[in-house]
Every structure is written in structure tokens, then in C-alpha cells.
Write a protein that binds this DNA or RNA. Sequence first.
DNA 1: CTAAGTACCTGTCCGC
DNA 2: TGCGGACAGGTACTTA
Length: 288
Amino acid sequence: MPELPEVETVRRSLVAGLVGRRIVAAQVSLPRVIRYPEVAAFLTRVTDRRITGLGRRAKYLLIHLDSGDDLMVHLRMTGRLLLQRPAEPVESHTHVILTLDDSHQLRFQDARTFGGFYLLGSDLAGAPPGFLRLGAEPLTAAFTRGYLRKTLQGRKGRVKSLLLNQDLIGGLGNIYADEALFRSGIHPACTGASLTAPAVSRLHAAINQVIAESLALGGTTFYSYVDGQGNRGQNVENLRVYGREGEPCLVCGARIERIVLGGRSSHYCPSCQKRRGTQRQRNKRREQ
DNA sequence: CTAAGTACCTGTCCGC
DNA sequence: TGCGGACAGGTACTTA
């Protein structure tokens, strides 16, 4: 499940192989993964363009082209971008192949086909609506404690669901939302409005921390995520609650529980993350 | 406006 | 061994 650290790791892993290269051929075997524009126009506008840089916004990867267009990719659940040689076997569920002028190919593979491509001009026509509304990202100057406080203020939704809302915070997904709530000692079912100022501060620090740590380890490979070279991320070792239902809490030994909130699994420690605002900093390390 | 529920999609896993 | 069903979750869309 590529979230911010995974998409950023993919970006970094592709810079050396893509920047400066020209796309000499493009093939699409599953038209619906090209979300905008129509496949024919997409192929025309991509072919013979040089890649000038790679960017990222939240979970969107941006391939800048010398035409001024951005080739934007969202991996969703199972999407992969792989830089491979033409002689390497094409793996199943490969839907897009861009052949480069140095005889490498950028291949898009996605078993569940949730992911897709958008070719965007400067007017951003065709961009998915959510892209235009993205909130501040962890680890950026815009993502301050004050921003998080104002964002959660007065919200009756559950903090877990609020953290997943990309309009509010760009780049968090289910894994890091659960991890950040654990580290800040906040029960996922608390409403945004119920969080005290110290709790918001701890949450802010924890979000930045779990993202930074995962980035340093090349992301979390839980199911299918790999970077552009096919390498797995090493952050699974670092997960404290996600995917650990029934296992002992690493801080207090209580059994990790799983509940469903907003249709998503939420993993938490019932002892470290109390529902009510009773401040328990016991068992919590200082997150700095 | 906010919040919650569902659709999309298919490989994997589990129980019988 | 085979098979049905639950499950995984990011985002768009619908409903209240």
C-alpha cells in the first residue's frame, strides 16, 4: 500500500534512470489505466518527450516532461513502477510500457488496476478532484502543530478517519495513521474535537516521526510494494501495531486489537491508547 | 458544510 | 484437493 514514504522511495529510486531520458515508444495494454486523456492523445503527447525531473505530491508521483506536461501516476494499492531492460520478462498485470532512449523500459504493473496515469498540462485539466484539494504534507513547513490543531478542531469524525482524509493531510495511509496514533497514545476512535492540545502536539510529532523513519528504511513492504529497482522496503520491522493483532504490545504487553473504523482496519493497544482524554503519558516515550 | 457508507478490483488466505 | 467467501485499502461518489 504505497503511502507517502513508499511513493517518495519509488521517486528517488527512479531519478537516476529516468531524468534526461527520452521516451521513444509507449504502449498501453489496458486502456482504462490511462485516466486522462484518451489513450490515443496520451500516446501522442508522451512519445518523443524528454523527462526533465521527478516530483511528488502526497501519494502522487510526477514525471516532468520537456513539453511542460506532467505525467502523473498514482499507485493506489498494488501499482508498481519498475525500471527494467526489454529482455527481462514482462511480468503479469503489466499495463503500460514506456521505452526509453537508453534501452530501458519503465513498466507499470498493477494487479488490481486501481492505479493509473494522468497526463496534465499547466491548467491541470483531467486531474483527479482529490489532487486539487490535498492538505499539508508531513515533514513540510506547512505541516505545523497549529495546522494540525486547526484541522482537527471541532471535527466530530474519528481521528483515524480524519488522518486518512487527504484533503486534511496529504500522504498518510492506513499503516502510518495507525502507527502515529499508537506513538501518540491516542485511541483511533476519539473524535478530532476531543483531542487536547498536548495530544495534538504528540500526534503531530508522531506523524512526522513515523514518516521520517519509514523513509529512512525505504518504506514498508507489507504485500506487494517494491521500489523502481524491485527492492522491498525494510520498515515492516519498525511497525508497532499495524498487522500485529493479537500480538503483545511492545510497550506494555497488552494484546493489540483490531477494530473497523470508516471501513478500514485500525490496530491499536487498548492499554496505551485509551478512549477517554485521561492523559496517560506513562508507558509513552517522549517523542520529542 | 461534515460524516459515513459503498464501489471499484483481484490475489491471497482461511475454513470446510 | 477444491472452492466459496472474507479481506486488503486509496479514492470517487452517493447518501443523510
